[in-house]
Each structure stands twice: as C-alpha cells, then as structure tokens.
C-alpha cells in the first residue's frame, strides 16, 4: 500500500481541468504530475477515486526510485489521451498485438532498468506497459540456451545436476 497524504483544494489555476498528483519515489524525490497523465494506471485511478468525495488532493508514496518513476511517467505522458486496448478494463483481453515502435525505443534500456520498469508497471497496474516490457524481455531470451538465459537475466542455476537434466514433465505444479 502506498502512503496517501490528503490535502484540501482540488483546483490548480493554469492547469486546466486536470488536477495534480504528488508522487513520492523510494529515494524521496517528489514528482508532481497531472492526474490525466497517470490515469492509465489503474492503481493510481483507484487511489484517486477513493478521495473523489472529499475533494482532497493526493500524494502517493511509491516503492521505486525516481529514475524508474520518471520513465513510467514518460510512458504515460507519451500515450496521454491515447486509447490502448490493453488498458481498457472493459475491453476483452487483447491477443498478441504487434509491438509499438515507440515502445521498442523507449524500452531500449539495460536489463536491470527493464526489470525495474516492468515491476513498477505491474505495481501501478499499467497493463500496456507490462505487456511491452514482457515482450521486450521475451525477445532478449528468445532462441537462447538455458545457460544463455541465465547469463542474460542474471539467474542462478540452483538445480542439482540430476534435477537440471530431468525433463520438466516430472516437475510438480
């Protein structure tokens, strides 16, 4: 759960009808962003809805760094006003839609950053960004051997030799 600090007043002159949100990152950076931009996040939307009746403003603490948060805000800003099927809670789950070109460039970051972004997007419930990140990670390990997958994503091989060579059909689950 994030920390939500509420204050009075819901209007900000000069900002049109969009209210401001204060997002606080794990490294204690305070980032003000228009509510419209973050409306793609179902998590944020739900938080804001909870305060609709009180006409209070919101500050939301988030468990990831400002660097990651800024990337997420950049994504949300780019698609501000765009309809993305993946983010429509009323739409049927989309199939495997083609990768958006902008997303490919946006996610051309190092492995750790990519993993941080997907985790943040998952936390914020931004399905379109989760999907794009997942696709980008899948592309990184596509066609690779298991050893290469471990190297690329920094996964430790914790199998015993017997387990490693046993067919996965014998696993439980």
């Amino acid at each position: 759960m994030p920390t939500i600090v509420s204050v009075d007043d819901s209007t900000v002159p000069g900002e049109g009808s969009s209210r401001l949100l204060l997002l606080v990152s794990s490294d204690n950076k305070h980032i003000v962003v228009e509510e419209d931009i973050m409306s793609r996040s179902r998590f944020i939307s739900k938080q804001v809805e909870g305060f609709e009746a009180t006409s209070q403003r919101h500050a939301i603490l988030l468990p990831f760094s400002s660097f990651v948060l800024n990337k997420v805000i950049e994504y949300c800003s780019h698609y501000r006003g765009y309809y993305l099927l993946e983010d429509d809670p009323d739409a049927a789950p989309p199939g495997r839609s083609p990768v958006r070109e902008w997303d490919q460039e946006f996610l051309d970051v190092d492995r750790n950053m990519l993993l941080r972004i997907i985790k943040a997007a998952h936390y914020l419930e931004i399905k379109s960004l989760v999907g794009s990140c997942a696709r980008a990670i899948a592309d990184m390990i596509r066609g690779k051997t298991t050893e290469e997958m471990r190297e690329i994503l920094g996964v430790e091989n914790d199998f015993t030799p017997e387990e490693e060579h046993s067919p996965s059909s014998k696993c439980t689950g």
Partner: peptide, 18 residues
C-alpha cells in the same frame, strides 16, 4: 512535500491536512 517536488507550483495549494 510539494516544495521539494520537481514540477509545478505550490502557490495555489492550501494548508495540508495529512
């Protein structure tokens, strides 16, 4: 918190009720 923020103005915001 807003005073430390990276964007926007605090002038129009009223006293906080945390």
């Amino acid at each position: 918190m807003l005073d430390q923020s990276s964007y926007g103005s605090t002038a129009s915001l009223s006293t906080a009720q945390p």
